[in-house]
Design a protein around this nucleic acid. Sequence first.
RNA 1: CGGGGUGUAGCGCAGUCCGGUUAGCGCACCUGCUUUGGGAGCAGGGGGUCGGAGGUUCGAAUCCUCUCACCCCGACCA
Length: 496
Amino acid sequence: MSSGHWRREPTVSIKGQDSAIMAKGITKRSDDYSQWYIDIVRKAEMAEHSPVKGCMIIKPTGYGVWQKMQQHLDRLFQETGHENAYFPLFVPESFLKKEAEHVEGFAPECAVVTHAGGKLLEEPLVVRPTSETIIWSAYKDWISSYRDLPLLINQWANVCRWEMRTRLFLRTTEFLWQEGHTAHATHEEAEEETYRMVHIYQKFAEEYMAMPVHVGRKTDREKFAGALHTYCIEALMQDGKALQAGTSHHLGQNFAKAFEVMFQDKDKERKYVYGTSWGVSTRLIGAMIMTHSDDNGLVIPPKLASLPVVFVPIWRSDEEEAQVLGAARELTKDWDPLFYKIDDRDHYKPGFKFNQWELKGIPIRIEIGPRDVANHQIVAVRRDTGEKITLPMEGLREKLEAMLEDIQQNLLAQARKRVEENSYVVDSYEDYKARYEDGGFFHVFLDHENPAVEEQLQNETRSTIRCIPFNAQEEEGPCMLTGKPCKGRVIIAQSY
RNA sequence: CGGGGUGUAGCGCAGUCCGGUUAGCGCACCUGCUUUGGGAGCAGGGGGUCGGAGGUUCGAAUCCUCUCACCCCGACCA
């Protein structure tokens, strides 16, 4: 491995004694959670601010995570019959206006191009905040028979939403995402698709991100502008705030009607098609950070790590350097080059490298020095537990694979435990008001069909109904606010 | 929109009140030597249109006017 491409660590100056910043330059979570988050993003070199307010530059460490997410998700999409395509960035303004609720929801946060080529455009172009309109305008030409259905398309793209308050990865003006857009012959098929995809998101969150989520339906107040209803996955961050991590929308015939997308069915009738759309974004990177990382830096679940294993060789003399590096190279000569890296930089001491790779969240660090070479062993250090484990060189690759799997499982178990410990069943509003400020998921009876109830909850406690969970127990109880009998509990929380 | 604050090297800052050689300091960076099992030491070195424009002056980072950007508080919104 050459050492020409190693990236420099950002500088951090330590302020006065009163500062919450510790020696490593990372604020402790217990001192200031949002500052901790900013420190992790910056110190682990995931992203930085761009010259344009609210936009971000995603650096290789951050983009590497996104590429792993893309890999896994793309496979899950393709396994369920979806194909990728690409639609344009610019949407004629008139398109956006064709679906009333949709335009009302998105107009305030759209960026609009009015000039191009030095001239005023005849019709302004909206930079897509989402692509339903441009895609459905194409579907009108793509669909004419029931034989064209279902149409299962996904695209990986950037979108732009002009947000007032932004935070790296969690809410940025421009972000990367995937958006699936499907068309079906019947309401039932569209419903199946909407339901299937939200569960694919759940599978991805739990099996790949090691992030437990609740799956359920959004209230009308929180649903997508233009949808009949929205399903979602909701995760709980370490500070007790909820984060919407993915959504899947049943669009009914709303966009089909707006764009006149019809098909001739077996019964010879011409009918409007039913649609769905679903998406997850680079926000998932923020979710990953706030689910697993600690005061020492980033923690990347093995399945999202573009670099799972890093070797830190240790030597004193030139002879030892040759010996140790030689042993490391010999040991790994048949390994996949994407699986590991040997950190042979000679201008940093091993201790510095330990800290740097820890900060960057690499799942396993391997220490190999003269003593190890003599004993034909290495020392593996787990990022999740910090445990140091001496392993023989024989069969190391297989042992590391097993250890990665164990780290993945342990991270999920830890996260599950944390969510369980911060989930509460509450029956009275007084009780809720006394406890909500400490964060967590609260399972309560609430008349979620009445928007005024949710509005009051939000005004008084800055909390919202995160979802009406699919797996709620069959029980009945009085609405916490109005006393009206409700079936099943909903999940409420303060959220990002 | 109102009030307050800050703009000086990649990052963090001093210098500005009271104008005066070549604008400093720490970290980072480069070179060399010594180091290397949890963030090394010493020596040398590179890097600045002092946010921008205009003015006062023999002379402006420093004084005056205008302007831009960002941050905090409030208002608005959620």
